[in-house]
Design a protein around this nucleic acid. Structure first.
Length: 476
RNA sequence: UCCUCUUUAGCUCAGUUGGUUAGAGCAUCUGACUGUUAAUCAGAGGGUCCUAAGUUCGAGUCUUAGAAGAGGAGCCA
């Protein structure tokens, strides 16, 4: 393996002899190869002496072919690039039949590229998106590492479905056609691989709480699975989630952490992935031009990102938000599909969008939600009606973070579980945390793909994960 | 799961009121040209009009059912 990359060559001064391998993006005028190796968005131009190269080799320089090029790095004679390689030796490593190669040097629709997801990272947009995904993932680990968090691997296969975060995928090795049955005709899971009913995890939160109550500050970053039949541009059946959990931290601290975290990782990619963000910014600007004036967004991608890093998130209680919504124009003129009347109503995405995009025009943290519309483990406030939950809403994305201070009082937690028919036997270990050395603690969950969407400006979640799993689709 | 829209060449799309041999741009191939930047010019090949059934003398076009894709809603991250 050589350390030489196109990214390094493009920043280099002239060099006597260089060898570089990559894939042909275009071959113009039998002379100019645009070569890309994935290290950067940009191609390096390689100038072929076509008069002294045999015809067979020239014909095999086609879009998508893998080649090895040796030559001299010189200042470019033409405009459009500062340096180029004068080719002395060109070797075809892998041919690419132009009759059948699906990625043409032209614009493709994202729908078409999704069907060719194994090749779509050979385009500028998807290589930029996936480099950003990788960079963001690193920024997340870096942030937690520098702030004293321990990285925890929570189990993928779990037995409890107690959280009720949606439909789960069952994990079983029983014979599907002829499973062992109980006397009452139900499937006997005692004979299953784990001796009980198991499923793919919907969240690592409950396990993360156990580590928070011993290691103090922990986070998980791994795949989660939901078998919901959701067909939207914001949902996946398999997605990656980041879940920090911190002992002795209350809801206010949780909001501080979430805001600082979001600002920090976005600032990281703004600094380290300038080229890719600029490219995606320009791509969006061009796309916006095709829309009518009224539908265009006020801020460009880079402006939106710097806006997040430089402004404080607006913190608003659920009760205040209901007042704002109740007195808002769309509510009075009945423009909302769901009219806000009573305290206690769940907010719909149209309401969240109104608050973020029209009213406050910045990221918003909503907190202290009615207990009835939130999960059982959230800390009940002294008013007995609300819980210490918080959601962060981002423009264009909606809910990106959901978190809470956890209920640390054993008796209150037991009452909540009883009210919701959650059997204590299933979560005995979770209750133990409240029996032995219980303490205030908090955490949140962040959908990684939604963060990648925000940072790249992509509008379909299937375009920010390598191989999306959605209902009726598990190709690749 | 619900609502709406879409499905015609490798890709993006047009196709009139149901009427002869289904078109364009790009891509591909052949030739010309050669310091190009989505190169240019000339020519050629390329179609199970998503599937099935129906109406009709005749269906890419109309009807019904199904499949796939997209957008929105719900659920959520």
């Amino acid at each position: 393996m050589t350390n030489l990359t196109v990214a390094k060559l493009l920043k280099s001064k002239p060099l006597q002899e260089v060898e570089i391998k990559g894939w042909v993006r275009t071959f113009r005028a039998k002379r100019f190869v645009a070569l890309n190796d994935g290290s950067t968005l940009n191609n390096i131009q390689c100038v072929v002496d076509f008069e002294n190269t045999d015809e067979d080799t020239l014909k095999r320089i086609t879009t998508g072919a893998a080649v090895s090029i040796t030559g001299e790095l010189v200042e470019s004679q033409g405009k459009g690039q500062s340096v180029e390689i004068v080719v002395s030796k060109l070797e075809i490593l892998g041919d690419s039949d132009p009759e059948t190669y699906p990625i043409q040097p032209k614009k493709h629709s994202f729908e078409f590229l999704r069907e060719n997801a194994h090749l779509r990272t050979r385009t500028n947009t998807f290589s930029a998106v996936m480099r950003l995904r990788s960079s963001l993932s690193f920024a997340i680990h870096k942030y937690f590492n520098e702030n004293g968090f321990n990285y925890m691997h929570t189990p993928i296969i779990t037995a409890s479905d107690a959280e009720g975060a949606g439909e789960t995928f069952r994990v079983s090795t029983l014979d599907q056609k002829n499973p062992p049955l109980n006397d009452d005709g139900s499937v006997n899971h005692k004979e299953d691989f784990f001796g009980k009913e198991t499923n793919l995890t919907v969240s690592g939160q409950l396990e993360a709480e156990t580590f928070a109550m011993s290691l103090g500050k922990v986070y998980t970053f791994g795949p989660t699975f939901r078998a919901e039949n959701s067909n939207t541009s914001r949902h996946l059946s398999e997605f990656w989630m980041i879940e920090p959990e911190v002992a002795f931290m209350d809801l206010a601290g949780n909001m501080d952490l979430a805001e600082d975290f979001m600002k920090s990782v976005i600032a990281y990619v703004l600094e380290h992935n300038k080229e890719d963000i600029e490219f995606l910014n320009d791509r969006l600007l061009n796309e916006e031009k095709t829309k009518p004036q009224a539908e265009r967004s006020e801020l460009s991608l880079t402006e939106k990102l710097t806006f997040v890093t430089e402004n404080n998130f607006k913190r608003v209680s659920y009760t205040e938000a209901i007042d704002i919504l109740r007195n808002s124009k769309p509510n009075k003129k009945k423009k909302f599909n769901y009219i806000i009347e009573e305290w206690g109503a769940d907010l719909q995405s149209e309401h969240e969008r109104f608050l973020v995009e029209k009213h406050f025009k910045c990221p918003v943290i909503l907190f202290d939600y009615p207990a009835d519309i939130k999960a059982f483990y959230m800390r009940l406030n002294e008013d007995g009606k609300t819980v210490r939950a918080m959601d962060i809403l981002f423009p264009g994305i909606g809910e990106i973070v959901g978190g809470s201070q956890r209920e640390e009082r054993l008796e209150v937690l037991k009452e909540k579980m009883a009210a919701l028919d959650i059997p204590e036997e299933e979560l005995w270990w979770y209750l133990d945390l409240r029996k032995y050395g219980t303490a205030v603690h908090s955490g949140f969950g962040l959908g990684f793909e939604r963060l990648v969407m925000f940072v790249t400006g992509m509008t379909n979640i299937r375009d920010v994960i390598p191989y999306p799993r959605t209902p009726q689709n598990a190709e690749f």
